[in-house]
């Protein structure tokens, strides 16, 4: 894990009347995340009631504060002070990994064949390649609970579909570029679908709401159709699935 930030960083950039963008890094890297999760916690402590929202993402943290209670200059000062003593979160090698069961199958993952073709490997090898890595959640966005995870093995790198689907079923597990994700709800989407998880990714009635959080480590675990259905998954093909 990198113990220092890149030269010239961190940097504070103006982001409207009520925000500062804290730029910590300039490239995507798993090692960024313990810095970002530490910064999130430090900001919560330093801003308290004057904090409105925080948006961590890959290399940055957007800090939104209440401009009636704190001026941008005061907010900048607080951020400067905490950045000066920021250290990354310590992570044990055996830190918990969240597991997402996935039924990898062409009926629910129509691009499984495309990825195999692009990679020049069998579908079984694609599944093994996707499920043997431990990924890191870089950001949540696009839709509630949609976690951008990386990095996918370079051999599975695949461009987005030229024409996005109007409707991607909930639970669809997907790859785009060197990132992977699971769709929490039915939405349009242009990623390559390779399987489906029965896990509920976003639940308004659950504490924390989202199964996956920024900084989490995640592994996909292949399961058979019977197990997928036993866990409540919707095995219907694309058009019919909810």
């Amino acid at each position: 894990m990198s113990r220092r930030l890149p030269r010239g960083l961190p940097r504070l950039e103006p982001a409207g009347l009520d925000g500062w963008m804290v730029r910590l890094f300039d490239t995507i890297d798993e090692a960024n995340m313990p810095w970002l999760t530490a910064l999130v916690r430090e900001c919560e402590a330093a801003f308290g009631e004057t904090l409105v929202d925080l948006v961590p993402s890959y290399t940055t943290l957007l800090v939104i504060f209440d401009p009636l209670r704190l001026s941008p200059a005061e907010a900048r000062q607080r951020l400067g002070a905490l950045l000066a003593r920021l250290t990354p979160d310590e992570e044990a090698a055996d830190a918990p990994v969240k597991e997402l069961p996935v039924w990898y199958d062409a009926s629910v993952g129509p691009e499984l064949g495309r990825l195999a073709e692009l990679a020049g490997m069998s579908r079984e090898a694609v599944i093994a390649c996707h499920s043997e890595r431990t990924y890191r959640v870089f950001a949540l966005g696009f839709a509630p609970g949609f976690a951008f995870m990386g990095s996918v093995d370079a051999r599975l790198e695949a461009p987005r579909l030229e024409t996005p689907r109007r409707r991607v079923p909930a639970g669809s597990v997907a790859v785009a570029g060197r990132q992977t994700a699971a769709y929490p709800a039915v939405t349009p989407g242009g990623w390559n679908l390779i399987g489906r998880t029965p896990a509920v990714l976003f639940d308004r009635d659950r504490e924390g709401f989202s199964l996956l959080q920024v900084g989490d480590r995640v592994r996909f675990v292949p399961i058979e159709r019977a197990e997928f259905e036993r866990r409540g998954g919707d095995a219907r093909p694309m058009e019919e699935a909810r």
């Binding site: 982001a15 409207g16 490239t27 890959y58 290399t59 957007l62 950001a139 949540l140 696009f142």
Partner: peptide
């Protein structure tokens, strides 16, 4: 690289036509 977007951010995609992002914008872009 995608990052948080505040209310009112005026982004300019490659077509050069600005988009002012309002209340229901996506959280990162």
């Amino acid at each position: 690289i995608s990052e948080g977007i505040g209310l009112g951010a005026v982004q300019v995609p490659p077509d050069g036509q600005p988009i002012a992002l309002l209340n229901d914008r996506q959280t990162i872009g």
